[in-house]
Amino acid sequence: MTILTVNHVTTYTYDAPVRLGEHRMMLRPRDSNDQRLRVARLSIDPAPKNLRWIHDVFDNCVAIANFSGETQSLRVENYLELEHVPMEEPECLIEERALYYPFSYQSDEMPDLARCIERHYPDPQGKLDRWARRFVPQGKPIATAALLMTMTYAIKEGLGYQRRFAKGARAPLETLASGHGACRDFAILMMEAARALGLAARFVSGYIYVPDRDVEPGHLGGGSTHAWCQIYLPGAGWVEFDPTNGIVGSRDLIRVAVAREAHQAIPLHGRYFADDAVAGEMDVTVNVRRLPDDTTGVT
């Protein structure tokens, strides 16, 4: 078991006073068998008029803040401490009926998986279909785990990582055509490729631990929030696939939010109002660290 800490600070600055509208924050990790939250502290400056917590339609924990008065800055700091037990080797857990592709989900699974199987981006000329079918040998089955691992590594090795601070995510065909993208672009590409093969896929936002950045080649996506995808495999459940780093399983990944589409899992977003045009800047820092093995955490 590993104890990881996360310190995630987002700072907005404005060149004139503004009135802050509602801000929604998906910053609290999902408790599970492979990650258990021990400490969570959310600090907001200026302090909100009220702060409430809800669970959204995907059961993500969302903090909703409302403000009063004017300000020229907003600072949100999220500190976490959690136990992390990575789940790996999904091929050992997959039910026999799904060990080889193609396979079918059971009828009682389909109502809940259907929207995650549907294609979410247009592919009028079938370019993404053809790209996804490259990983499926003609006329014979292939091990499901091998198929998805190969696709994961193909994105990592075949496309260039490019950190991008602009809002939104690129369509899969745009990512393929450009030959590069950010972690969220790679996640969406793999999701849509998996959906093209009839598999249920969903988007994940969270953090990545970079284990010894100065000694080993670091994982890409460190120093900011990270994104990857999950694919539903009978017996193994929702399995993590990080095509940015070629990670299969939850090693070094901290899940915060899951959703059908990327825009449903934005870590922090909100609005501000002003009587005149106001320019604003955003700065984000994320530090993920491993505590010494003999550290006793606070409960």
Rank of each mutant, 00 (worst) to 15 (best):
D293I: 08
A279C: 07
D214M: 10
G160P: 00
E83Y: 02
R24Q: 04
A143L: 15
P141N: 12
A40C: 11
Q138R: 14
D214G: 03
T11P: 01
E77D: 13
M190F: 09
R52Y: 12
R184G: 04
V76R: 02
A145E: 13
A40T: 09
N7P: 01
T13P: 03
E88S: 08
A196L: 03
R202W: 03
P211D: 05
A143V: 14
V256C: 05
I3R: 14
K140R: 15
V256D: 01
R260H: 10
S104G: 02
M282N: 09
A143M: 15
N7M: 08
C61Y: 09
I266W: 02
A169V: 15
R130S: 10
Y207E: 01
R97L: 11
R202T: 03
R130C: 06
N50D: 15
A40V: 10
P172F: 01
A143K: 15
G198F: 07
F273P: 02
G297Y: 06
L253Y: 01
L37S: 06
E22Q: 14
A98H: 06
D123V: 04
L197M: 00
I188K: 04
V6M: 00
C229V: 15
F67I: 06
R289C: 10
L82V: 04
E70C: 03
R19S: 10
A193K: 02
I208S: 03
R195E: 09
S178W: 11
I94Q: 02
E240S: 10
C229E: 12
E70I: 01
A279K: 11
L189D: 04
E22W: 00
V278E: 04
S178P: 00
N50H: 15
A177I: 04
R195D: 13
R115V: 11
N66E: 14
Q230Y: 10
Q162K: 15
A154H: 09
V85Y: 00
G297W: 07
A259P: 00
R30A: 11
T144D: 05
H55F: 11
G179S: 10
F67N: 03
G181L: 04
